[in-house]
């Protein structure tokens, strides 16, 4: 089980211009890439979208880790290509594979350069999230807190996963032995302990939170405040423009695959 695949989505603590952008700006940028990528299955559009992100990867100093996540995506890309060969032309297969790479790149760029804490803060500032959270969970910060906690626990769970694998291998379990069905079954002794550890930990976390007075008073404050800078505004403007133009083109022209 290769946990290195996740490397391409793990936050890196750097202070590059890309890292310093407001998380909301970066998220809008992701959407600005997503919208044309999903509206047009055109090879040139995909290549342009892919290339437009390359400078950001280098400025954010995450190009090497992006390459890592691409390597992990090779298998899935091949699968997408083959499946689409059967259902359409080879050109559309290429376009759809490229679309997958575009999505992979933009999400991986976002997660690699946005700290989970910033993400939580950003979520907290979105009115709809606060309203939903209050309606469902009775507390405006609950949803964003749940999200941050989940993200925060991923690396911890990865360590646990490694230990469980080690423990079961010490009992003679060989993960890559047997036919396909056997191999899938081999993972049962890994998944059950992991699941139980996660459940037990979340119960403990809930008790620890309650004993420290969570959720506390209405309107929790934050030490760090998000602030949109001029760069952010200009990127937001560009993103909105791309989204707008994409929809306009989509409704007025028919874009071919090539």
């Amino acid at each position: 089980m290769s946990l290195r695949t996740l490397e391409g989505f793990k936050f890196s603590t750097l202070k590059t211009p890309v890292h310093l952008l407001d998380p909301r700006t970066k998220f809008l940028l992701v959407i600005a890439v997503l919208v044309p990528a999903l509206l047009f299955a055109n090879i040139y559009v995909m290549i342009a979208l892919l290339l437009s992100q390359v400078p950001l990867l280098f400025v954010g100093k995450v190009a090497r880790r992006w390459a890592l996540s691409l390597r992990a995506g090779v298998f899935l890309s091949a699968l997408i290509f083959v499946v689409n060969l059967f259902t359409g032309s080879y050109l559309s297969a290429i376009a759809l594979t490229l679309r997958f790479l575009v999505l992979l790149t933009s999400f991986s760029l976002f997660f690699m350069t946005t700290s989970p804490d910033d993400l939580g803060l950003a979520l907290d500032r979105i009115g709809a999230v606060r309203w939903l959270s209050r309606r469902w969970l009775g507390y405006p910060n609950a949803l964003s807190f749940t999200f941050t906690t989940a993200v925060r626990l991923v690396p911890t769970l990865a360590v646990d996963a490694q230990t469980v694998v080690d423990a079961q291998r010490s009992r003679g379990l060989e993960l890559d032995k047997g036919n396909l069905l056997k191999r899938v079954r081999n993972y049962i002794p890994i998944l059950i302990p992991l699941l139980l550890i996660a459940i037990r930990r979340s119960l403990e976390l809930a008790e620890a939170l309650e004993s420290r007075g969570f959720p506390g008073k209405e309107g929790r404050t934050s030490l760090f405040q998000l602030k949109l800078r001029p760069v952010d505004y200009s990127i937001i403007a560009v993103s909105l423009a791309i989204i707008g133009i994409s929809f306009w083109v989509y409704f007025h022209y028919k874009i071919p695959v090539l």
Partner: peptide, 22 residues
């Protein structure tokens, strides 16, 4: 040599039982 084969001779009991009970 594989871990499975070595484990036949070397028994390693992990610290936290939750990591292996299933």
């Amino acid at each position: 040599v594989s871990v499975a084969r070595l484990s036949r001779k070397v028994g390693l009991v992990f610290q936290n039982p939750d990591h292996l009970l299933f």
